[in-house]
Design a protein around this nucleic acid. Structure first.
Length: 250
DNA sequence: GCCCAGGGTGTTT
DNA sequence: AAACACCATGGG
């Protein structure tokens, strides 16, 4: 029902750490420490706290969705089976947006390191930095944290939020195509980062971010098809496929 | 040393 | 519109 590894270590969030079977992290300023054992025996606080119920998307029926996706193709069924317990998180939209700006042409381990340093330097009490804090940050200082050429992209993303050009509450209910158009108007944001923001930050489950792994899977296993093949839960299908492909031997 | 990583921008054909 | 160079950085 909820698998922490397939949910917290599947490239949708970058601030959860696992140590000796115990996962810990912070979301919207709230710390959580939880083990898979507590999840499996139902004693974890995530089942009783409305915040975590929403964060882990515990009220959606992933068994049902998984069955519908599995019926589409054998490969999809294999990915769903391999990713049992994976769920699409409801992350804070700014954190998702900012994190995936950092993600471009980068790898997950390094993304996580950069975000750790951003939080230490600009966040309060281990929280993710506010857009204001990053808007006011010195570009050279951002560069020094390892952001590379993405330093000015982070600045422009923060500026877009601070100025109100991007209003996540509006993006949440707007038609997806309009929301994507607004996101990609920010310097350093293309279709992939926009789709990750919409899927992981605003729970727009029809969004299907196409990174190098997904492009590889589509070319190899779904030739001639695109995200419309997967229907209204394409984003969930995408995440099963990403997690499966990344852990698989090729 | 080269290639790759949850890509995007700007320029040239 | 498609191809291409370029962008920092660290791990394999």
């Amino acid at each position: 029902m909820l698998n922490l590894k397939h949910t917290l270590d599947c490239g949708q969030a970058f601030r959860w750490k696992e140590r000796e079977g115990v996962w810990s992290g912070i979301a919207e300023g709230r710390p959580l420490t939880v083990s898979q054992e507590e999840i499996d025996n139902g004693t974890s606080e995530v089942f009783s706290d409305p915040f975590w119920i929403n964060y882990f998307d515990l009220e959606s029926d992933y068994e049902q969705i998984g069955e519908e996706l599995s019926a589409l193709s054998p490969v999809m069924a294999e990915a769903v089976c391999a990713g049992q317990g994976l769920r699409i998180l409801n992350q804070e939209p700014w954190e998702a947006f900012c994190s995936f700006v950092v993600s471009q042409n980068n790898n997950i381990k390094r993304i996580a390191g950069i975000i750790d340093r951003l939080c230490l330097r600009y966040g309060k009490k281990g929280s993710f930095p506010t857009p204001e804090a990053l808007y006011e940050a010195d570009i050279a200082e951002l560069r020094a944290l390892g952001l590379g050429f993405r330093d000015r992209y982070i600045h422009s993303a923060a500026e877009a939020v601070v100025s109100g050009k991007i209003d996540f509450n509006e993006l949440r209910t707007m038609p997806v195509k309009s929301a994507r158009k607004i996101l990609v108007s920010v310097l350093g944001v293309g279709d992939k980062v926009a789709d990750c923001t919409l899927l992981f930050g605003l729970h727009r489950l029809e969004c299907f971010p196409k990174d190098v792994w997904i492009k590889r899977v589509m070319a190899e296993c779904f030739p001639g098809k695109d995200e419309t093949f997967f229907g209204p839960y394409a984003g969930i299908a995408q995440q099963y496929l990403f997690d499966w492909a990344r852990r698989r031997e090729w």
